[in-house]
């Protein structure tokens, strides 16, 4: 009865409207914040991938384990938004180019040719595939329990290989 009276007054009407709008407004604001954080995390992820690939090009990172560790460090304060256990780093050789076809022919020519090749062509590279899950901050675990998967592939050559 009291509620009925309240809603039939001006003040009551405004309050009812506020009660209806605030959850919607909060939801939308939360969405905006989540979306912002998501893109920010994506940018940090991409930057970290590129930076560690540059470390590889500089010769300071050599294998997948070192890549994973360096990548995790590069995430910096954003580490809390990522699931460490979901991080996987895969490597493969870059797609063969013209020189690879020639190199394969040299390899089949014998060990002396291979040694000579080592003197002349001493650059090489890797294609790194980095995958990690991003967990939505400030959200209940039943919403996307495994988080959102981010993936990036970077390919770089280095000298000396």
């Amino acid at each position: 009865m009291a509620l009925f009276k309240l809603t039939h007054k001006f003040r009551g009407q405004a309050l009812t409207e506020m009660v209806l709008v605030i959850p919607l407004l909060t939801l939308m604001l939360a969405g905006v914040i989540q979306l912002t954080l998501l893109f920010q995390a994506r940018v940090v992820f991409d930057k970290a991938c590129g930076d560690v690939a540059r470390e590889y090009a500089a010769g300071t990172v050599n294998d997948s384990n070192a890549f994973s560790d360096e990548f995790w460090v590069r995430l910096g304060p954003y580490q809390k938004y990522f699931i460490r256990n979901s991080l996987s780093v895969g490597t493969q050789n870059p797609k063969p180019s013209l020189i690879d076809t020639i190199v394969q022919k040299i390899d089949s020519a014998g060990p002396i040719a291979q040694k000579l090749k080592g003197f002349v062509i001493n650059y090489g590279g890797k294609a790194w595939t980095i995958t990690i899950n991003y967990s939505l901050p400030f959200s209940p675990t039943f919403i996307l329990p495994n988080g959102i998967s981010f993936q990036n592939q970077v390919t770089v050559l280095r000298y000396p290989a």
Partner: peptide, 9 residues
């Protein structure tokens, strides 16, 4: 950087 690596070689 890859172009630079081939150049340096």
């Amino acid at each position: 950087l890859s172009a630079g690596a081939v150049y340096a070689n």
